[in-house]
Amino acid sequence: MKNIFLTAALVTIFAIMLICVFLFANGIPAMKEIGLPEFLLGTDWSPGDVPASFGIYPMILGSISVTLGAVLFGVPIGLLTAVFMAYYCPNGLYKVLKPAVELLAGIPSVVYGFFGLMILVPFVRNLFGGNGNSILTASILLGIMILPTVIGVSESAIRAVPDQYYEGSLALGATHERTVFFTILPAASSGIFTAVVLGIGRAIGETMAVIMVAGNQARMPAGILKGIRTMTANIVLEMGYAADLHRGALIATGVILLLFILFINITFYLLKRRATI
């Protein structure tokens, strides 16, 4: 029976190997055919042209820009909310707000996307001009979507700081706010950084919500009020009708996305290990 449990446990390793093998085996030949520098740094994505060109540099920049935007919006708000949850929230209110954060995490990404499409797109259009489908809109929406991750992880990091820090700082005459911001937060910084890394992972992998608000033009970023296409959007939008090298190029886009995520995961793992030592 022990061996059955062991076999089940090995399935996880097997699954991740299978995922890598199938993506790499289908993506790498396409990368070779296009040429790796051309694929990664080419600024033109026109799969329909003769000859077709498959440069995903615009999409890489697209993914990076909306992710950075999401961090810019989501991290300060999330972190400050986490501070509230840990140091300001009365007990009764906490019993309502904690499930509310979980609810925020549970809302499906299509629903977020739809909300973005109906509310954020017109909002950005009326306030800043442009047609509303833009880097800015996608950044705000992704910022909202990473809130529960940032709040949850930073709150537990803040709570993990020993009480003596707080009491010691108060005893030295610092106010509640000064203590929280200049003693507790620095002490929790590695946990907070983990929260940011997890948020980045969530933002860069998000697909459906981004498709619905980012405009999806496959061109170099032209300003925060202009549309952009991310790597994830590229795959979903074109996989339905792609064939041959085009299909290979989309799978190769998935490979690059997977490499980004693996890199983020390794960073996360190293951070966590340093925190436990």
């Binding site: 992972g201 795959i235 998935g254």
Partner: peptide, 11 residues
């Protein structure tokens, strides 16, 4: 746990 759902979709 960290792999985005679209990559699962591709796989």
């Amino acid at each position: 746990a960290g792999i985005p759902s679209i990559v699962y979709g591709l796989f």
